[in-house]
Nucleic acid binder design. Sequence first.
RNA 1: GCCGGGGUGGCGAAACUGGCAGACGCAGGGGACUUAAAAUCCCCUGGGACAAAAUCCCGUGCGGGUUCAAGUCCCGCCCCCGGCACCA
Length: 859
Amino acid sequence: MEKVFNLRKIEKKWQKHWNDIGLYRTKEIPEKKYYVLEMFPYTSGELHMGHLKNYVIGDVVARVKIMEGYDILHPIGWDAFGLPAENAAIKHGIHPKTWTYRNIENFRKTFEMLGLSYDWGRELATCDPDYYRWTQWLFLLLYKKGLAYRKSDYVNWCPSCKTVLANEQVVDGKCERCKTHVLKKELEQWFFKITDYADRLIDDLSLLKNKWPDNILKQQENWIGRSYGTRIVFKYENDGSELPVFTTRADTLFGVTFITVAPEHGVVRRLIADSPYSKSIAEYVRKAVQKSDVEREFGKQEKSGIFTGLYAIHPLTGQRIPIWIGDYVLAHYGTGVVMGVPAHDQRDFEFAKRNALPIKVVVKPINGELDPEAMECAYEEYGIMVNSAQFSGMTSEAGIEEIQKELHKRGLGGLTVSYRLRDWLISRQRYWGAPIPMVHCPSCGIVPVPEENLPVLLPENVKDFKPRGRSPLEDAEDWINTKCPSCGGNAKRDPDTMDTFVDSSWYFLRYIDPDNKSHIFDPEKVNRWMPVDQYIGGVEHATKHLIYARFIQKVLFDEGLVSSPEPFDNLFTQGLVHKSFYYCNHCGEVVKDEEVKDEIHTHCGSRVELLTEMMSKSRGNIVAVAPFVEEHGTDVARITILFAGPAEKDMLWSDAGVEGAKRFLLRILRFYDAYARNPEKVGKELDPSKLSGNDLALYIKLQQTIKAVREDSSQFHFNTALARMMEFLNDLYSFENKNSPVVGRSCVDFAILLAPFAPHIAEEIWNMMGFEKTIFFERYPEYDERYLHFEEIEIPVQVNGRVRGRVSVRKGLSKEEVFEAALKDEKIKNYVKDGTILNVVFVQDRLLNIVIKSEGGIN
RNA sequence: GCCGGGGUGGCGAAACUGGCAGACGCAGGGGACUUAAAAUCCCCUGGGACAAAAUCCCGUGCGGGUUCAAGUCCCGCCCCCGGCACCA
């Protein structure tokens, strides 16, 4: 009679038990600390398998560490400020706060169903005044340190979200959230001076080497984009003011035939005023600035520009160099001005050709000449300098250095560094965020809100959240009008709220001291647990959250509040979860499975397409966690995710995978139910030196399994760890004498090995075996070094690199002994008999290769 | 264009530091159990030659190379995914 197990019922039982005994309560003072953290979720919509992967991986890590004897900190919270809350308010008329807390409630319930190893006593939500009070405090700290400042700049503007965006939130010229093309808008905004930390953010990546994925380190390095070059000062002919340029090719300085200024550059206003062609230039600049980045990129081939009629003085030759304005020059890189060397820079070449500017060759290939008349593209390689006064004849490398020295001597530039990274634009013209704690006073200017007056609470009586290009908070009369903290006169609050990435740049610190009423956190407590030992999250944060959080950590480090320069010691980035779905090109929509028959959309009769994409609500291809767990149980979800493939790689969610996972778990339960219900048997001490035959073989297999599972799981190779466990379970099933004490021992060790992966099922079989205390009080099993291999082993014997037979020998035999044994083998004898043995290659305990030359002469 | 990561059975994937390619799972086939089906348990399953076994040959994107031995190392290509991209 087949026994039926109700997985969900088993899970609920143990979840209650774990709660009752307070299994995941964090120790106040850890002896051997381990801080494991998953990137907290943004509470929108419904938790699906795509989200879950992150939390399952974190939970496995946490449980392994618990069972390795660490005191763990494993908290969870909610990233809860942000645009979707306002969108919901606009669409459904629900207040963002109501919407958000409802979502949090929903998320928490789902998380609780999962029985994850969180210490719920540390839960936090970034939209909670008790939290954002300290986000505001952090802002004030940066302000005090000169790291938060206000400037007017052309900023990324999303016309659909009606708010500004940080550089990092613009992807392919589009708003990362709504995919609308981003425009440039000149606005006065708050920035964090992250560029001050550019060097440290790059240099400290070396501390994370081999602990963070290489591609993330690389991405950050590229994003910060440090490049060493030369600053060269051209002087404006009219008044001698400086017009510095940045170049990595100072060796081409004598080839300059023009300089080009970015249309957004501050000096442009002056140039317009001075120019004989003011009108047309002003018109050109106006148009160029209005172009979005995307439009400008269309101009990649067509480099537009306009001559100002003005000149600058070459720092070494004293020649007059025409000043142009061109939109191929980036305002935000280098100095916003480039020197035009058409002979040796392709962009300048194109610009010169288009505008009939002269081309002057100053670097020639080591063997060969260049004819400026005949050139079809720029010569960008290094070479030998020519036409460059005293520098002629030098290599480019030497020339760069010598010219730097010369410029430095003359006070006209020298070695310098340039970064791609820009300051972090943090103000948002939105409601649902932490208000910027600043007051604008007509007489005192910009005044910070005193710390004791924090938090600046978000007013709740705001009704209209429709984006209109300015913060909805400006209309909250009672709120926006305030008194100046400095002079007491009438003043206005800053109407903007902070980018939500500010909220998430320090949450991992607050978890350690979540209830602190008087400080952002107690440094002593924080230093007990920081840095995060294992951080787990998505790759998409490589150049956003993971840079911002590192920056904030360094600011706090400088302030003496934290003692580690980096927040996250180890990082693991999990792959996405994809799912297939049907799409009807005719109807232009995603089609539900039940509306598809034989690949035909039953509504319209046209053929559907099977697409595979990342799970997302908008695609309608999500598998929601809550109903899935209700039906199959959480351990099935865990095993499905963990076994599908390498955790860092994208996976495809499939029903077949679910079935396989379920089959594995039920197979475990059936085995224990049938053979491990006897506490007498499982508790027995075992002396491996007394074992022989099958018992010994099983014992060795157990040691191998323990070793493999431990090693695999410490490297996040959960799929292979599970494969080893499945293999071992197969061995248990086929083992004849189920009453063997080795089977008893195997059942105990196997259950513990399984516990981090399928905690509920492991606890259940642990209980079946008659143990009273939770399995999570057990230590992860150690393997017995002496019993990892059989004494008798099989060695493949190759003849000329092909396996032709195998010999059974004792472990550790010498080359000669194995060779001798191989020659006794009939098959080998046959292969070797009519040839001359040239060589014998032997790898201890692994392989023997006999190299022969046969009579026929063909090998 | 530059920088990462990949390409292995019908499918998801394994393979230490160069040493038996395809562990484990899914799908498929066969058997046991069952009145029957499902479930379960056991066995088979890269391709080809042979009626079959034994056996042999081919096989890790493509073309070369190094080596007793290459999925793994070297040279040259092709394709896919991710990041950056007029960065001076």
